[in-house]
Design a binder for these strands. Sequence first.
RNA 1: GUGGGAUUAGCUCAGUUGGUUAGAGCACUAGUUUGUGGCACUGGGGGCCGCGAGUUCGAAUCUCGUAUCCCACCCCA
Length: 403
Amino acid sequence: MIKSLRGMNDILSEDYERFTYFIELASNIAQNYGFHYIETPLLEETALFKRSVGESSDIVGKEMYQFIDKGENDVCLRPEGTAGVVRAFIQKKLDKAGGIHRFFYHGPMFRYERPQKGRLREFHQFGVESFGVASVYEDASMIMMVADILDACGIGYRLQLNSLGDSNCMPQYRENLVKFIESVEDEICEDCKRRKKSNPIRVLDCKNEKCQSLYVDAPKLINSLCDGCQSDFEKLKKILDENNIAYEIDTNLVRGLDYYSKTAFEFVSDNIGSQSAIAGGGRYDRLVEFLDGRATPAVGFAMGIERLMELIVMPEKKREGYYFGAMDEEALELILKLTQQKRKSKKAACDYKAKNLKNHLKGADKINARFCCIIGSNELANNTIWVKDLLNKTEETISLEEF
RNA sequence: GUGGGAUUAGCUCAGUUGGUUAGAGCACUAGUUUGUGGCACUGGGGGCCGCGAGUUCGAAUCUCGUAUCCCACCCCA
């Protein structure tokens, strides 16, 4: 038997219902916030992700499905959604056009990781990107949008917040931090030595107790913000307070993608195991410029749909549609014809075998149909059809013309 | 990429110190005498015991390899 590749799942039946339920719900909310759908290719030039996500990140460094195609192009399956949207934004010259552009998307992402619960090699994200708004109000709106979506799904969460600084304060901080790390480098763990080069801020939330004790006196990013970043961060907190969005400041929160600056946030669930981040995002004011566009402020987030699926509280299923059955062989073709007519406007199922009434009612019940429509010898003789409403438990026999 | 656990029917799981034909519940299917569903009762179909080697007279059971899932690390959504 040929099986699906490691870390790749089929989505069907109940899972599919949850999946589409979430996408519809999230899409509606995104539209309420003024976002428009965008679809970008699954396959992109590898350079796009190297330049945006960053070569130092794990995602680009070791998790990409990268290969050379038949035209000798270095390509890869997208590991995340932002880079493609930014590329499209620039390619369509929307950066030159100016103004505000807001997009949402959903679709598969690919990362060659070791699978675990909540961590797949092909997984799905729902995300939004906003271009052209420098105001921190947009950051706040994004966060409130995630909260709206999670609330609508009945999902509990904790919101973690941080500011990563901008090009004024971040490089200086980074330099100071690296200097600090070097001062204790002999005693820190191997992972931290590696992080010092790739993403020095990451050392701050190392799980190793010895490292933690050494980092007590490390410089804190939150204390090194420039005036602009500091005041925006204060504004953001104030807005969230006023809108009753609870948050925790996590000074060690670092987004694993290199393009983030200023606002960084992560929504975490305590109910799905160690892969607990259900949504994450932040501001990335420099990315458009990095990718050769005109400098444009931007902010966005992405949600992991598979992680959310386990947590979504689905609305109760209602009885819906019609079930058609015949009690007489001679009526089989008639009920199929009636089913076809009904299908023009409603969900309708047809049983192809003549059975007694009891079996048909069972059948209608099993597929959760609202109406059970039967033609037997009586109905055939009188040109009528017997219809039972399985929800209200009422029944009637009506002429085929009226039906 | 590192370390650990698991894998038996469609699903959830039993399976004795290695010993006849591998079980249960749910699900599926057919009936319970012929026009009233969800219930109940009685039958029935379903298993390369993840896959491949090895030990043994004999392996679901022991050993090794391998695949997948799960847990922790790592990372992230």
